[in-house]
Amino acid sequence: MSWIDSLVSNPAITEALGPAALETVQMVGISTVFTVLLGLPLGVAMVVTARGGMAENRAVNVVLSGVIVNITRSIPYAILMLALIPVTRALVGTSIGPIAASVSLTVAAVPFFARLVETALREVDPGKADAAHAMGSTRRQTITRVLLPEALPSLIAGATTTVVTLIGYSAMAGLVGGGGLGRLAYNYGYQRYQPEVMVVVLVVLVLLVQAVQAVGDALARRADHR
């Protein structure tokens, strides 16, 4: 069977590719949603509790930035996902499948995204926060109506980078029961030595990343009025 023939006849491609891609999208989708939901407030909290911040608090800042974010970020994902298997079982009842994989993906991505949020907020001219305060804004109003909207283009760029990183991690998560494209590439491309499957998976992953980046760039550009 030739290489080209197998593209249209190999069931690993004709039948398994679609569902595997969907699983990957599912994993990345779920973990992206939770990453943004958790990482955004975490990033904001790191900025406002920092030295000179709106609600300066050294202890809280050390815990958030020094302990939670730095420690999680220094653990390689391959180890993090294994270490989190018991936690995943407790949370979703199983350690198999894309939903289970989303747990470790989220845990890995939250601190990553929170740092990007922190950087994005720091880039906002402090004069804007001064203006907001001088006009009588509460801290909450300053954050939600001024800082976050002003940082929106960078926040979108940060979210895009996070999604791309999650796509990469998701392939690893696939190996230990997450499923998806990573699993497909490992089972067929590596274990059964079908290089065409490996190539097709790579192409799909590259296209996925390109699509995410293109959409992210377009959204960031639309949000940017500078």
């Binding site: 804007k128 949000a223 009025h225």
Partner: peptide
Amino acid sequence: FQHANLFDSR
């Protein structure tokens, strides 16, 4: 303010 400090997103 010296540099107006307008909100660019609005």
